[in-house]
């Protein structure tokens, strides 16, 4: 896939979204240090091209499900960053009214079925969304994002099987950053992920997740298959994880050298700039202007979040049920 298949405006949008995710995460990391964002959070920095390349192939009403590392998927699917930032700060104006937090950001109006605190839990839920689309005849597709670590939960395999026997319009996007928390994937995973999916006759594609154009192309093939009634596809996307597992992780189990090399050699934003420059599709100055625009948007989101009120105390016991007599 070459950059040439996207229009100038699409290219700028791709860059803007990736940049937005990167800076959102860097800013969240910084704000964690002030103590104003409660708890801990899992940052998506480094993995941006995966979420953006996949979601660029989706309609507004298509579904995605995400993981504990969910900010990037949410932004790529169009969830508003002001409400996301407010959610992280635990404020009433947050995406979930401050009741969910980082690991539970969901926006059903955007087809975003939720980050998830339980590893691999999104996969079967996404099968359900794909089943809805199929039985209701809406033409929607559903994407389940999951990590390499999630591949070792039994429910992943169960979901592969279900997706295939029901020929669901679903795409499993396995974002392999080489680690489940502090444990290297190689230490805990036997065989190969693609062969696991292929044993269910699910087509698979290995993808370089630092190249948004490769992700976009692979996702295009998968989405086309799903919409045409061809059933599930699995993408095995190789990505770097820039930060530790969570915001408080000292990340000493990786050497300083390998972390520096990762940031130097595996940067989807740097790759993008180089690719569009090579074919002179977007001016560098234009991308620099996007950087500034993103910066301003994030500043606004943080200031607004800080100024927003916490949820009212009554919110503690509402929403447990639609109606409870």
């Amino acid at each position: 896939m070459s950059a040439l298949q996207l229009s100038h405006d699409e290219l700028v949008n791709v860059y803007r979204t990736m940049r937005m995710i990167r800076r959102f995460e860097e800013r969240v990391m910084q704000e964690m240090g002030t103590g104003d964002i409660p708890g801990n959070t899992h940052l998506y920095a480094g993995q941006e091209a995966s979420a953006v390349g996949v979601c660029l192939q989706l309609r507004d009403d298509d579904y995605i499900s995400s993981t504990h590392r969910g900010h990037g998927h949410s932004i790529a699917k169009g969830v508003d960053i002001d409400s996301m930032m407010a959610e992280l700060f635990g404020r009433a104006s947050g995406t979930c009214g401050g009741k969910g937090g980082s690991q539970h950001i969901a926006d059903l109006r955007k087809g975003m079925l939720g980050a998830n605190g339980i590893v691999a839990a999104g996969a079967p839920i996404t099968c359900g969304a794909a089943l809805s689309a199929k039985l209701l005849g809406t033409g929607q597709v559903a994407v389940a994002f999951a990590g390499d670590g999630a591949m070792n939960e039994g429910v992943m395999s169960e979901s592969f099987n279900l997706a295939k026997i029901w020929m669901l319009p679903i795409i499993f996007v396995i974002e392999d950053n080489g680690f489940g928390e502090a444990t290297a994937n190689a230490h805990v995973s036997a065989g190969s992920f693609t062969r696991r999916a292929e044993s269910y006759d699910i087509p698979t594609i290995e993808v370089d997740g630092t190249d948004v154009f490769s992700v976009y192309a692979a996702a295009g093939e998968a989405v086309e298959r799903a919409r045409a009634g061809g059933g599930p596809t699995m993408l095995h996307v190789h990505v770097p994880r820039y930060y530790g597992h969570y915001s408080g992780d000292p990340d000493t189990y990786r050497t300083p050298e390998e972390k520096a090399a990762m940031r130097r050699e595996r940067d989807c934003l740097g790759n993008f700039r180089k690719r569009v420059k090579d074919v002179s599709l977007v001016e560098t100055a234009e991308l620099d202007a996007v950087d500034e625009e993103v910066e301003a948007a994030i500043d606004r989101a943080v200031s607004a979040a800080r100024a927003a009120p916490f949820p009212p105390m009554s919110a503690l016991t509402t929403d447990v049920y639609v109606k409870y007599l």
Binding site: E181, A182, D251, Y253, R254, T255
Partner: peptide, 20 residues
């Protein structure tokens, strides 16, 4: 258990977490 030590199979410090 998961990450009982932290750093299994990685190149850096072993027992990096000493558990979650």
């Amino acid at each position: 258990g998961e990450d009982l030590t932290g750093g299994a199979g990685a190149n850096g410090v072993k027992d990096a977490w000493g558990g979650p």
